[in-house]
Amino acid sequence: MLEREGLQVTSLEDEATHALDSRDAAGTEEIALHGEHTLEIRRSAEQDLLEVTGPTGVAGLCISIDAEGISLQVTGTKVTLATRGALAIRADELALHGNRGVTITSDADASFRAAGDIHTEGRIQTIRARLGNVNVEANDDVKLEGERIKLNA
């Protein structure tokens, strides 16, 4: 027999049923964390919200659970996501945006593939091979358009 919150529960199944029943209760719970951080759990009929706030009260991690699913928001002056193994991100659409720049690097080879077209656009584009060739292959025509096309200039 287990005892939780003043209730006597006769089995793990009864404990799980009690946990589901108590889930309907709306309210807020705060848990103090290291470094003056706080975990706040807010429950309502529409959603559950888990929020980690810093000493200034600004949220750094927010997990929202509602009828549409789980939403994760991480904010801060510097956020690092690291793993010793593989990291995969899958979505119907993926957008990356950097207000002051975007850098993608690899200590090994890198590949970009699309089942459809690939479009790149910028003020100036530079393609550079540090050692070796620049290989351009096409199943059809290779087109170069510009005011002037300079070869070996």
Score class of each variant (00 low, 15 high):
Thr38Phe: 03
Met1Cys: 06
Gly146Ser: 07
Gly85Ala: 14
Asp14Pro: 03
Ala114Phe: 04
Ala88Met: 12
Glu13His: 05
Ala16His: 08
Lys150Ser: 08
Asp24Ala: 14
Val142Glu: 05
Thr103Asn: 12
Val52Thr: 04
Gly35Cys: 01
Gly116Met: 06
Leu12Pro: 10
Glu46Phe: 01
Glu3Thr: 13
Thr17Cys: 02
Thr105Met: 08
Leu72Val: 15
Gly132His: 13
Ile104Ser: 07
Glu137Ile: 08
Asp140Gln: 11
Glu36Phe: 00
His97Val: 05
Glu15Gly: 00
Leu61Lys: 02
Phe112Gly: 12
Arg90Cys: 08
Thr83Pro: 00
Asp14Ser: 03
Gln8Ile: 14
Gly76Ser: 04
Thr83Tyr: 03
Thr77Leu: 02
Asn135Ser: 13
Ile124Ala: 12
Glu93Thr: 15
Ala91His: 09
Ser106Lys: 05
Glu13Phe: 03
Glu13Lys: 06
Glu145Ala: 13
Arg84Glu: 09
Thr77Glu: 10
Ser71Gly: 14
Gly98Phe: 04
Asp117Ile: 05
Ala129Lys: 10
Asp92Leu: 01
Thr126Met: 09
Arg84Leu: 09
Arg42Thr: 11
Thr83Asn: 07
Asn152Gly: 13
Ala82Trp: 00
Leu50Val: 05
Gly60Glu: 10
Gly101Met: 10
Glu121Ile: 11
Lys78Gly: 05
Thr56Phe: 01
Thr126Pro: 00
Gly27Phe: 01
Thr38Ala: 04
Val52Gly: 04
Thr120Lys: 07
Asp48Gly: 05
Val136Pro: 04
His34Met: 06
Thr56Glu: 12
